[in-house]
């Protein structure tokens, strides 16, 4: 703020009018009296005040939205609504724990169903491919190291 009370400047009065309009009851209370006193002394500020009056009059021409007794009743009933009465809201409360688990279970059930009912289900070519000669001859030392940690050579498990 530029100035207050006894040090009210013309710029600050203009700023008040531009921001709050012509009705001084909207101005900050601590600046009101000194701003009005300044306006009484300066013609240019009175012109600015008149211009703001015009815009205030236009704003006042907008009708006030009517109240809604039905909404008020609904708002008052709100505490009586059982918490979680909304089914989706209730589900949402458990969304975090059950969603990943449900996805995993669904994938498992689908795999089991395919395995049991569709033994000839075509698998991707990559899984079906025989190892090349180079791959067959290559012994990965990490297989045995990892396998030893669980009591068996992983190479044995994979072959």
């Amino acid at each position: 703020m530029i100035a207050k009370t006894n040090t009210m400047t013309d710029d600050r009065v203009r700023a008040l009018i531009e921001a709050y309009g012509a009705d001084s009851s909207r101005w900050p209370a601590e600046e009101r009296a000194s701003a009005l006193a300044r306006i009484a002394e300066v013609d240019e500020l009175r012109v600015a005040l008149d211009g703001a009056h015009a815009l205030d009059a236009l704003l006042n021409a907008v009708p006030t939205p009517s109240p809604s007794p039905a909404l008020r009743m609904a708002l008052k009933d709100l505490p009586d609504q059982p918490r979680g009465s909304n089914w989706f809201g209730w589900l949402g409360a458990f969304a975090a724990p059950w969603q990943p688990a449900a996805g995993l279970v669904a994938a498992g059930v689908l795999g089991l169903w395919i395995g049991v009912t569709q033994p000839d289900f075509p698998l991707p070519a990559l899984l079906d491919a025989s190892p090349t000669a180079a791959e067959a001859d290559f012994e990965d030392p990490f297989d045995d190291a990892a396998g030893s940690a669980i009591g068996a050579g992983t190479g044995d498990l994979l072959r």
Partner: peptide, 20 residues
């Protein structure tokens, strides 16, 4: 801040004056 609010008010009123 109050200063920022006054700026918003002044800009808004200026735009309204221009529009009307």
């Amino acid at each position: 801040s109050v200063e920022a609010l006054e700026s918003l008010l002044a800009r808004g009123r200026r735009a309204l004056r221009a529009a009307l």
